[in-house]
């Protein structure tokens, strides 16, 4: 290693203050990074909660009537958002608190210094990844909402008939005449007398 050392310029109060500040920054490097990570962790936990609370619980009602491809897209986007949000939260937790593991005691002072800096570098890397995942999570959530709002609706091709006894029959309309409505239900024809019809409505699909 070709390191050359010579006497430097005379020190001043300003150069001394800068040197002390650099030492303080160095001593607090890991602590400051972990404070940043803890704040990001709080934000990510809130974001994941928003997704699971609003997206997953209400999601099933919101996607009824959307074409099947749109439903799959919404489900996939929400799942990806949860995965990204949880991954980002875990990374921010690791950046904030580290991860318990056994490690050899540093043998030299140089090792102390190097491992201290390595921990700060690892925390910075985790924090950057957590920030990226937070943005990705938000983008996926916005995408899921956009598909819910703007995806084409499935045509209302099914008829649901409720008779006076409350029995519900759902199928595709084959015809109507001779005082009856004819539906195809799972391939079989069902005739329902018009006089027995209590309620009739159109649906985009029939319940299983």
């Amino acid at each position: 290693m070709t390191v050359r050392v010579a006497p430097g310029a005379a020190g001043t109060a300003a150069s001394r203050a800068r040197a002390e500040h650099a030492q303080e920054q160095q001593d607090r490097e890991l602590e400051l990074l972990r404070q940043h990570a803890a704040n990001w962790r709080n934000g990510l936990v809130g974001l994941v909660g928003l997704i699971t609370g609003a997206g997953l619980i209400k999601g099933r009602e919101s996607i009824v009537g959307i074409v099947p491809g749109g439903q799959v897209a919404v489900g996939t986007l929400l799942l990806a958002a949860v995965v990204a949000g949880v991954a980002g939260t875990l990374l921010s937790l690791r950046a904030a608190y580290g991860f318990p593991r056994s490690r050899e005691v540093d043998a030299t002072w140089r090792d102390v210094r190097r491992n201290q800096h390595a921990r700060a570098r690892a925390a910075a890397r985790d924090l950057r990844a957590a920030v990226v995942l937070a943005v990705v999570t938000l983008a996926l959530l916005v995408g899921a909402v956009a598909v819910t709002w703007y995806a084409p609706r499935a045509p209302l091709a099914f008829v649901e008939v409720t008779d006076d006894d409350g029995v519900v029959t759902c199928g595709t309309l084959q015809g109507a005449g001779d005082g009856a409505v004819v539906l195809a239900v799972h391939g079989a024809e069902r005739r329902i007398s018009v006089q027995d019809v209590g309620a009739l409505r159109l649906r985009s699909d029939c319940p299983p």
Binding site: T2, G8, R16
Partner: peptide, 12 residues
């Protein structure tokens, strides 16, 4: 006490 060193490395 503090003192100042001029440290250089790489090609001379």
């Amino acid at each position: 006490a503090s003192w100042v060193l001029d440290v250089s490395w790489g090609a001379p």
